[in-house]
Amino acid sequence: MPIIKADKYPLDPYLRTERLPHVWCPGCGLGIVLNAFLRAMQKLGMDPDKTVVVSGIGCTGRTAGYVKMDSFHTTHGRAIPFALGIKAARPDLNVVVFSGDGDLFSIGGNHIIHAARRNIDITVIAVNNFIYGMTGGQLAPTTPETSITTTSPYGNLESPFNMAGLMAIAGASYVARWTTVHARRLEKGLEKALSKRGFSFVEVMSPCPTAFGRRNKMKGIIDSMMYYQKYAIIKDNPNPLDGVIKPNEKFVIGEFMDAEDEPTFDDKLWELTKRDFLETSQADRAKWILEHRRHLETLATLIAGENIAPQEGEMDE
């Protein structure tokens, strides 16, 4: 029985539909992440006119070209500082960076650490597919150890980044990691990240069946997705240090950081342009700068494992 044919999709108002179908391979998770992001926007009632999407280079970098919003497809690695420039100049706009693990953590690694440290009020959606897809499947800073890529034909010698942990420690206000299989939780996590004031970061583990899966014992599209279903474990308030991903082992997904709101970098930059603030004493300015720093306390609690709900395997003890 055929499915009812439609010529419109419910998220079409957010999409440059004339550009569809998109460039991504069959079974690529990127469409799932974009779908979840647009649903989160819709749920929150975010105005697409006031939302700017900034991407870098790579498969994920092409995202900016599909959203019907002000959107920028920048240079490799520089989406974050480009977005920072927009947000600092126009704090009234919602600024979202949508890019890949290689773009954000290899060539752009320095920028994302500093953006988290500054707590600029942008949302970063980092799609982690373990690989450089656009260039044909080379080693990424997230490729699990031993994995086969076109530039690690004997198996990857390097340890991958724990991106979520790194962001939590660097100063992000909100950090979560989900996978494309956990589509509903991903959508909720993105809702939370988009509503969060400050630097919010969502890592989405997303399959690349074409350039990663088929070289690493995941024969088909479904196998690549099932990998996440098989190995992901959801934890409440996980320790950011436990975000390490090892090949064919369980890995943690969930919310790695959810700090209290504090003035963001853009708030502070604009505070500095107020005559009162400029003319007050240095002591008062110092007090204002320091009294709002809550991130470190939240981080200490998470790392010490205090106030943390029982984790898997600890329930019966």
């Binding site: 920048t74 500082p81 420039g85 600092a88 100049a89």
Partner: peptide, 9 residues
């Protein structure tokens, strides 16, 4: 990169 963003803004 930031000044290009700032200019578009």
């Amino acid at each position: 990169a930031a000044i290009l963003g700032g200019s578009w803004a």
